[in-house]
Every structure is written in C-alpha cells, then in structure tokens.
Amino acid sequence: MIRGPIPQAPAQPPKAQVEITIDGTAARIPEGSTILDACKSLGVETPTLCFLQSLTPVNACRVCVVELEGSRVLVPACARRVEPGMVIHTDSERVRHSRKMVLEFLASSVDLSTAPDAQRFCERYGADPARYAESDGSAATVEQPVKIDNQLYVRDYSKCILCYKCVEACGVDAQNTFAIAVAGRGFEAHISTEYDVPLPDSACVYCGNCIGVCPTGALMFSSEHELRARGQWNEAEQTATETICSYCGVGCTLTLHVQDNSIVKVTSPIENDVTSGHLCVKGRFGFSYVQNRPDDV
C-alpha cells in the first residue's frame, strides 16, 4: 500500500495577544483568555470553588473576584475575559475583604468539614465564621438530614455551597440527564429533583458525574460515607491506581482509590482527553466484581 505524507492540520493562526497588567506586572495574554487563565500563567494563585475547567463558568461563588480598575464593582476572574489595557489587582484590601466575607458566609452556613480547598482558603484569608453566631447562636445554616435513597451515593446538602457544578454535570456540560436543578429562591435555594422525589424515582442514571465535580463532599460514594461514619476513612493510607475501564470500547481512564485492599471510590483524571473526568455508571460504580474474593463470599 502506498502512503502519501501524513496530512497535517492547517496551522492555526497565532492568537492575538492582549496586554494587561496584573498586580503591577505587565503581561501579554492570548485573546479570549479569562482573568483566571492570566493569573495562572503568571503564577498568581486564585481561589475558586464553583469553577471547574470542564464546566461552563457560572461565577456564582464570587471567591475569585478581583479588582479591575475602572469597574465600579469587583469582577469574577473565572468568567471575565481579558481586554486590552486591563489593570487588575488580585490582592488589594477590597479583594481580600470580599474573599474573606464570602468564605465566612459559606463557612458559617455550610458544613465544610469535607471541603479541604474551602478550608485552605478560609485559613489564607483569615475567615472567622464563628463571629456570626457568637452572641446568641442565631446564624441560619443549611443544616438538614443526609439523603440516603440508593446504594451508590449519598447527598448531604448540609455541605452544599450551591456551586451549580452538579447541575451542570447532570445537564448539557456532561451527562444530559437533567435529573437535578436548583429549586427555591434565596437562602432557601437548593439542589433538587422535581418535587424532591428520591433519586430512584428521578431521571438519575447514577453516572456519578455530580460526585466527581462536587467541591465539598456533599455528594459522596456510599462506600466513603460509610467508612467516614465508622471513623475508618483514611486518605493517607489510600493508593490511587490508574487503569482503563473494561466495560466498553471507549476506553475511559479510571483511577481506583484503594484502602485496605478494597476499592473505596473511582474517579477519572479531569485532564484526561477521553473523559474530562466524567464516567458512566459502570465505570464509576461497577467495580465490585474486581474484588469478589473467596474470603468475601
């Protein structure tokens, strides 16, 4: 067989560069980038909670806000695209104040005990959530019973910061199942199926992609939830093993998280070209056959 030269994709025209200033440093950033992209390229660490590279930015948490000269209010770094001549401050008093307050608002109303990123940001910005309930313990919270209505995962909305990621992952950004949406309004807004029906009655297909994107552990594998409840969850002792899912021909990369020689949860790397971190019910939850050992029977 005669082969010609391997066809090459036409060279992309180089992206125009936009000149901006971040914290006094002039930088040239590719057109179309967000301020968050620009911060990353300059090594400026920016806290984010509702942002995920695989999802459409909703800029709802507001923890990534930065000060843009000429703008009356702060702007979200995750969604705002760079424009020529922007002068941005990422660590001004205004920025630090808003970030601290956002983190205090969350930490005083939501259980962040399984949200390591949020905890780290709280420390960095000196958030003091206790001061809201100091005098009489009157600060409203979203505390509520854990929803356990299926064998695969639990929903603990006491830990929900309403970042919308699960809704996006269930919807057009990944799964197109639309089992959940935001319902209610204001402080009573919450993630819900229609009429709050249990998951088995809903459209849920148990892909678990909502768990994969949840930043606070509000959505959690039942296996992890049970181990935590027994005080046996030990992340330091866990190993992570990459493999390829054996169920179909797509070839999704799986990361098996193993503790005491048992798989305790399955994820997929977000930077993986095949999955972008998303899986289906088989890859996510269909692992028990791997460990059907004689002793277990």
Partner: peptide, 23 residues
C-alpha cells in the same frame, strides 16, 4: 426574601445582615 440565591455574597449576606439588625 427577594435574593435569587445565585451568588454567595447576596444569598448569605442578606441573611447575615438581617440577623445583625435583629440582634
């Protein structure tokens, strides 16, 4: 009551503001 609930500063801030006024 009228906050849509989308962003944290408004969703929680309006609650904390009302609580402080009551205190």
């Amino acid at each position: 009551d009228e906050s849509c609930g989308q962003c944290v500063p408004c969703r929680v801030g309006t609650v904390r503001q009302e609580e402080a006024l009551h205190r």
